[in-house]
Computed example of a mutant assay.
Amino acid sequence: MTDDVGNRKRALRRELRSRRRTMTESEVEKATESLTDHLVELVSGLDITSMSAYLSAEFEPNTRPFLNWAHERGIRILFPITRADGLLDWAVSTDMESETEGLFGLPEPVGEVLSPMAINDVDLIVVPAAQISRSGMRMGWGKGYFDKTLGSMEKCPPVYAVVFDSEYVDEVPTERHDQPVDGVVTPSGIHRFTS
């Protein structure tokens, strides 16, 4: 059963990557503008002082304008730093322009590196995703970093994923280790889930 689910996930991820690569520049710009507005609305409504978020890669929904907005308002942002052992360290970037390439070619900030425990102090977690189901299940990109992190937290703050509208779907293939999210932000709005 797990092999079947794993195979379905791998095929779906390939399809989603392909779809993201075929988006036009105009579609990406419009999505970025709407996503930024909704992320600002989410954070403003929660009145947070710190959060964990990620630097979006080339074909991911663009979180960078939102991150710049948060940084300018003095919100402390922890960014994930991938480790070979499957855990995430965290870095606080004081310079939103400086970044490096981490494991798997993903962008990571340049800054002081903190331990995996640092995430326990944030008020909100913003995660990437491949798809989110209408019940709040998250399908990631297959490395398991965020599932492991979220599954190990004693007291987890609200977790919101960011995806394009077409990636917010009725259901996603799910395995035992997959972690749900509290909400999803898409270009069309903020969608919250009740547990």
Rank of each mutant, 00 (worst) to 15 (best):
E29I: 05
E29G: 08
K30Y: 11
A31M: 11
A31H: 11
T32K: 08
E33C: 13
E33T: 15
E33A: 14
S34N: 15
L35H: 04
L35Y: 00
L35N: 01
T36P: 01
T36G: 00
L39W: 00
E41F: 09
E41N: 12
V43D: 05
S44M: 10
L46E: 15
D47I: 11
D47Y: 12
T49P: 00
S50Y: 13
S50L: 13
S50C: 13
M51D: 05
M51R: 07
M51E: 07
A53S: 13
A53P: 02
S56F: 02
A57C: 08
A57K: 03
E58A: 09
E60D: 06
P61Y: 00
P61L: 01
N62I: 02
T63L: 02
T63W: 03
T63Q: 00
R64S: 08
R64F: 09
R64P: 01
P65K: 00
P65W: 03
F66G: 05
L67Q: 01
W69P: 06
A70K: 04
H71K: 11
H71P: 04
E72G: 05
R73A: 06
G74K: 09
R76N: 10
I77M: 11
L78Y: 08
L78Q: 03
P80I: 08
P80L: 10
I81H: 00
T82Q: 12
R83H: 09
A84T: 15
A84F: 14
G86P: 12
L87C: 14
L87I: 11
W90G: 06
A91R: 04
V92N: 08
T94F: 12
M96Y: 06
M96I: 05
M96G: 03
E97K: 13
S98Y: 05
L103C: 07
L103V: 06
G105S: 04
G105H: 04
L106K: 00
P107C: 04
E108R: 08
V110P: 02
G111N: 01
G111C: 01
G111Q: 03
L114G: 09
L114R: 11
A118G: 06
A118F: 02
A118P: 03
I119H: 05
N120L: 15
V122H: 06
D123N: 14
D123V: 08
D123A: 07
L124Y: 04
I125T: 08
I125P: 02
V127N: 02
P128A: 05
A129N: 07
Q131G: 06
I132W: 02
I132N: 00
S133K: 03
R134P: 13
R134Q: 15
R134M: 15
M137V: 06
M137A: 10
M137D: 08
M137T: 04
R138I: 10
G140P: 02
G140C: 07
G140V: 05
K143H: 14
K143R: 15
G144V: 04
G144Y: 08
G144R: 09
G144E: 07
G144Q: 09
Y145Q: 11
Y145N: 12
F146K: 02
D147E: 10
K148V: 10
K148M: 13
K148T: 15
T149V: 14
L150F: 12
G151N: 06
S152A: 12
M153L: 08
E154M: 13
K155R: 15
K155Y: 13
K155W: 12
